[in-house]
Each structure stands twice: as structure tokens, then as C-alpha cells.
């Protein structure tokens, strides 16, 4: 166990959406007075870079395994606020089985999914959220299938009291509202998941305004709001 990176600068790429989600989370926890109870489990992928971003307890898990790890942590420590932080691949591909069953069993954990439509850390391969027609390293001719709509899929199996929503990193106000609602849902003993549509200028190969337009375009396929 170490804190060796505590004071080092953020390792996220310039223009990445992750810091926005993490800041929204940190501020909301602070406002709710829950920073001490919060435990942020990190999936592998760009999510792992959040290890020293916030002054709350964090630890790495494995790729796709953050939800079962947080389910176990919550069983051990019911007064904690268990947060699983993951990308779209960790959530909806390699970790989907666990995520679905966590929702199905209504486990009182909160899963924060950062959806940038690609496997970003490994170089921009097709993700379960890649849009139909989107070109990636592994689909150079464009992805042939429609993306998985995570919160909508979870809705099929989740308890009616589970909180499932989608927001975007260019709407901080809504992001913070949803985070608060998700944590309150966990406190009430239910499952919650928020998907954040997020920037990845590195793999989208976009600049400035283009990145924002790309994100806005995603909202046509990924419906914003409570699901």
C-alpha cells in the first residue's frame, strides 16, 4: 500500500472528460459530508488514473471487476459509500455479467460509468458503446452494430427503486444532481448507476470545438436523463 503518487500531477490526457466526472464526484461527496465514508474502487483502463485524484479512499481492482469488488466491500462495511469507477468496456463488455447481476440483486453500490465510445487507454479499439459506423483501430471500416445502451439494459433487470441515469461531462450541474441522487439511492439500500458521456479527444482525434460537437452528437444515440 502506498501513497507515492499523492502529489504528482494528473495523468489524464489534455481535454479528457475523466477529471470533470471526478471533480463532480468529489464536490458532491464534500457537500453531502460523505468524503470520509466514501470508498472509490477503480476499474482498469483510464479509470485507474483516478487513484490519487481525490482526497478519499481509493484502490485499484482488475479490468471488469470493480462492481463485484465493491459489492463485497459493502457487505463488509455497510456504513461506507461504495463507488465503482469504470469505463464503458469494463462496465458493458468484460464486466457486464457482474454489473447486470449487481443490478438484478439490487446491491447497494453506485457504479459510475465513463462512456467515451472507445477503449481509450489501449489505443482506441471498438467498445460496446462504439457507434454504428464509427471508425476505430479494430473496426477500420466502421463498427457494424449499434452500441449497448447500458442504463437502459440495466433497467430490464434492476429493482424499480434503483437509480439509473445518463448525463454528460458538459453538464456539470446535472452530473452533480445525478451523483447526489445515486448516493442517496445507495443509502436507501438500492443499486445505482450513472453513465457519463465523456470526451476522448486523443482517440476521437478531435480538437476544441470539434470535441464538444462530437459529444453533443453522441446525445442523439445515448439519451440523457433518468432512465
Amino acid at each position: 500500500m502506498n501513497d507515492n503518487n499523492q502529489n504528482s500531477p494528473s495523468k489524464f490526457c489534455a481535454g479528457c472528460g475523466h477529471p470533470i466526472v471526478l471533480l463532480a464526484l468529489g464536490k458532491t461527496l464534500e457537500e453531502m459530508g460523505l468524503s470520509k465514508q466514501a470508498v472509490l474502487g477503480l476499474d482498469i483502463g483510464c479509470s485507474l488514473l483516478a487513484i490519487n485524484f481525490l482526497p478519499i479512499n481509493t484502490f485499484h481492482t482488475h479490468h471488469g471487476r470493480v462492481s463485484p469488488t465493491m459489492v463485497g466491500f459493502k457487505k463488509a462495511r455497510q456504513d461506507s459509500i461504495c463507488l465503482g469507477y469504470t469505463g464503458d468496456g469494463g462496465a458493458y463488455a468484460i464486466g457486464l455479467q457482474s454489473l447486470l447481476h449487481s443490478a438484478k440483486r439490487d446491491e447497494p453500490i453506485t457504479v459510475l460509468v465513463v462512456n467515451n465510445t472507445v477503449y481509450a487507454m489501449t489505443g482506441g479499439q471498438t467498445a460496446p458503446t462504439t457507434l454504428k459506423g464509427q471508425k476505430t483501430i479494430t473496426d477500420p471500416d466502421g463498427c457494424k452494430n449499434a452500441p449497448i445502451l447500458g442504463p437502459e439494459l440495466m433497467r430490464q433487470v434492476a429493482d424499480p427503486k434503483a437509480f439509473l441515469a445518463r448525463t454528460a461531462v458538459n453538464d456539470i450541474k446535472q452530473a452533480r444532481e445525478f451523483i447526489k441522487k445515486a448516493i442517496e439511492t445507495q443509502q436507501a439500500g438500492h443499486f445505482s448507476l450513472i453513465e457519463f458521456l465523456s470526451f476522448c479527444p486523443t482517440n476521437w482525434r478531435t480538437k476544441g470545438q470539434e470535441t464538444l460537437e462530437y459529444l453533443e452528437n453522441l446525445k442523439k444515440v445515448f439519451k440523457i436523463g433518468v432512465i
Binding site: 481492482t61 482488475h62 471487476r65 463485484p68 469488488t69 457487505k75 463488509a76 462495511r77 455479467q97 457482474s98
Partner: peptide, 16 residues
């Protein structure tokens, strides 16, 4: 749901 989840939930529980 499978042994993978059992293993990681166990990791989570002992961390707690």
C-alpha cells in the same frame, strides 16, 4: 453470478 465475482467480492470484503 460466477467464481470471478466470488473472488473479487471476497477481495472487497477483506479490504473492508
Amino acid at each position: 453470478e460466477d467464481e470471478i465475482a466470488a473472488g473479487f467480492a471476497l477481495c472487497g470484503a477483506v479490504l473492508g
